[in-house]
Amino acid sequence: METKLIEDKAKEIRREIIKMLGEAKSGHPGGSLSGADIIAALYYKEMKIDSTKPNWEERDRFILSKGHAAPLLYSVLAIKGYFEIDVLKTLRKTGSILQGHPDMNKVPGVEMSTGSLGQGFSTAVGMALSFKVYNKDNRVYALLGDGECQEGIVWEAAMAASHYDLDNLVAILDNNGLQIDGKCSEVMCLGSLRNKWRSFGFHVIEVDGHNIPQILSALDEARTIKGRPTLILAKTIKGKGVSFMEDRAEWHGAAPSMEQVALALEELK
């Protein structure tokens, strides 16, 4: 039941991403689509949130560290009711609250302004640390790209997260294997992400990032881990759900034409 609901929401999110990017005529479909199942699991099961109270103190926090996947975050927030769904049509247009990269002062539900890779994760560590200092039980979730892990600040933040025993922090790595200039392994090889995060003190759980039960059980497991942060290494397909976009670097930052939008929506029925 629960799985079915989340799967349906993930599909709805994907449809909104495609429509939004078609309207905007620019933006990032690949990395938005690859995170749809993860974000659906977070917003429809895992996180303590209330869309009618975006500033509720008790809420958990989600930080889109890979800020270029803004359409992913905007669509789940709109579907959840943080703002009117029609606003999605204004993505990237002059005067819109929906900037090319998320702006926390413009959009209800956006917890941090991101877009410069690596920095979102660092701020997520800061939030988790603050909750620890003040004995709050809010949890913090951050979605990172694999290319993003080439930034030094990611590892500086990871070091701090484990040094301060941030078991209220869950980093989720959208491991789609691609960045802008091609495959991560060819542009700048990341080696074993599992071993890297482990050696930085994280509890690492590997999942298929398009398998809802696996994502949910990893999130459950993370709650049981005490004294250290968790990294969910989610194997994903960039452009997932739209056949002509899947696993293709050229769909990182190119918007679909209206014909391509129609084709994609047909596939996402």
């Binding site: 620019s26 933006g27 990269h101 702006d103 991101t114």
Partner: peptide, 8 residues
């Protein structure tokens, strides 16, 4: 820089 916005 245009559509990418203020962060860029």
């Amino acid at each position: 820089v245009g559509e990418d916005g203020g962060s860029h």
